[in-house]
């Protein structure tokens, strides 16, 4: 019983992985790709690992550590990527209306190649 419930929870998680990949392909610029990539992989890996934890109750502790780690670090890496993308927003052709951060900086952009 545990096995089959866990397998279906993992299947739901892998659907979110697929969703994030489709989002990466369809979205028009790096910011929007990040939106799809970060959110969908976070819930996807939570469900996928939780499903494995349900299938193998002995491993549940490790899965909880991995889930907490992913929930804490995935937004941090997307934040670092968003700052990098904002430094090169004109070169990568990001459409941002309004752009409060550029207004705050007076429209400066990083100089080196992205």
């Amino acid at each position: 019983m545990n096995e089959i419930v866990g397998a279906f929870v993992s299947l739901a998680g892998s659907l979110f992985f697929l969703l994030s990949a489709v989002g990466l392909l369809r979205m028009p610029d790096a910011f929007n790709r990040m939106q799809a990539g970060t959110k969908a992989t976070t819930l996807g890996s939570i469900l996928f690992l939780l499903g494995i934890g349900i299938m193998k109750p002995d491993w549940l502790g490790r899965m909880v550590i991995l889930i907490v780690f992913i929930v804490l670090t995935n937004p941090v890496s997307s934040n670092a990527l968003a700052r990098a993308a904002h430094a090169h927003r004109k070169r990568i052709g990001a459409r941002l209306e309004p752009d409060a951060l550029a207004a705050e900086d007076g429209g400066k952009e990083a100089g080196h190649a992205g």
């Binding site: 299947l11 998680g13 790096a30 990568i92 992205g114």
Partner: peptide, 28 residues
């Protein structure tokens, strides 16, 4: 069911690899 889940995850990995190959920018 679990093999199907892993298969879908591999498909997601391959589709993301398409975006990795196409870029067009380092950030993408």
């Amino acid at each position: 069911v679990f093999a199907a889940a892993a298969g879908l995850a591999v498909l997601g990995l391959l589709l993301s690899a398409v975006r990795f190959a196409r870029g067009p920018w380092a950030i993408d």
